[in-house]
Amino acid sequence: MTGLLDDFSLIDRVLEGNSHAYGLLVQRYQSYAYTLALRVVKDPMAAEEVAQDAFVRVFQALKTFQKDSKFSTWLYRIVLNQALAYMRKKRPEYTSDFPLDRPETQEANQELLREERKMHLDRAIAGLSTDDRTVLTLFYFKELSLEEMSEVMGQPANTIKVKVHRARTRLARALETTMKEEVHSLL
């Protein structure tokens, strides 16, 4: 039963040659890696490529992974680096507007209110800076402490804390703007 194994046990199995165990790790973190990549590159297709390539790099470097930190921290750092590298290399024409939402069959059945909230959130987040988007995304993943976030972003924990607070305020202001726009559109 590999489904209930923790990350380190799965990694041990991968290193023993069990590819299936790596598939389980990918499934466990795919939405987090994809979300982080998407928040940085703002393009769903590119985000998929970035996140997939990050997982491949992680696989190749798995032997060097030191278990003194969480697997997710290490993964997110690689995803973030991959996404930032993509942003540095990408051509200007890729800086298209962030799509409000992409068709997601898995979430199609969820309640309308939740979808609306997601839509507002996406729209507001898209208007923030890359730094704000990254810090908020990592913060709201919930599983990372400030120290782990600082490890992912390569910045001191105190700086991250200030950034989280300011980014959250800017998000609230951005949401306020979208709410007002919506009210105006209804009048």
């Binding site: 990918v26 997939q52 390539d53 997601e104 898995q106 709201y140």
Partner: peptide
Amino acid sequence: LGLKMPSPDFATRVMIKV
């Protein structure tokens, strides 16, 4: 609420690349 889902074959495509 802020989590986005990749395409359903995401993990498969990663494993093919791997």
